[in-house]
Simulated scan of single mutants.
Amino acid sequence: MESLNVYSVLVVLFLTCGAAMSTKENDQIIKENNCETKIGLPCVLEAFTSIFEIGCISNKCCGELVVLGKVCHSAFVKRTLENPLLKDLSPATIIAKSIQTWNNCLALTDSPSPSA
């Protein structure tokens, strides 16, 4: 139960920081970190589907997501959440799925490869 409370606090903090950040600031973070050059379009689409819809992300794209980095990942998610076409989505749900996708990919890329 304690981990659920810690998780809830982290989500609230993440949302608060996200709400304070404008699209312009997210765009600046993306530009300054060359985020758009660090991940291919097919993997962007997989990550988007994994976070904003129902789907999973491949091992290959998990690797690209981790190379992209947490700062770029968060900026992309926050910028996408500000899109008026997605106004009906729950930011808390999206942030939770974003964190889950990031953590799953990070764990996957940190784990040793199975031996053949």
Rank of each mutant, 00 (worst) to 15 (best):
P84L: 06
A92M: 09
L10E: 15
N103I: 08
A19E: 06
L85G: 15
N83H: 12
E25H: 12
K31R: 12
E64H: 07
C17R: 11
C61M: 05
S111I: 05
N5H: 12
H73W: 09
P114M: 10
L13H: 01
V12E: 09
C56Q: 10
L89G: 01
A20P: 01
F48P: 02
K70G: 00
L65M: 13
S50A: 15
I95D: 03
I99M: 14
L108M: 11
S8F: 06
P91Q: 02
L10I: 08
H73S: 10
A20G: 15
K87H: 14
A19Q: 06
C43G: 04
G63T: 03
V44R: 01
A96R: 04
K24T: 11
M21N: 10
A75C: 08
I30G: 00
I99L: 14
P84W: 07
K60Y: 13
N59H: 13
K97Y: 11
E36S: 14
E64A: 09
L13F: 03
G18E: 01
L41N: 05
G40F: 05
I95L: 11
N33T: 10
L10D: 14
F52G: 04
I94V: 15
N103R: 10
F76M: 12
I54C: 03
I51N: 02
C56E: 14
C56T: 15
D110E: 10
K31Q: 09
L41C: 01
K87M: 12
L45P: 01
N33G: 05
V67T: 12
C105E: 08
L15P: 00
T101K: 05
H73E: 07
F76G: 03
V66I: 15
N33E: 13
H73G: 02
P42G: 07
T109N: 04
E36T: 12
T93H: 08
S115T: 14
E36A: 11
F52M: 06
V12Q: 09
C72L: 01
K60A: 14
N104S: 14
D88H: 15
P91G: 00
L45V: 15
I99Q: 08
K97L: 13
L13W: 00
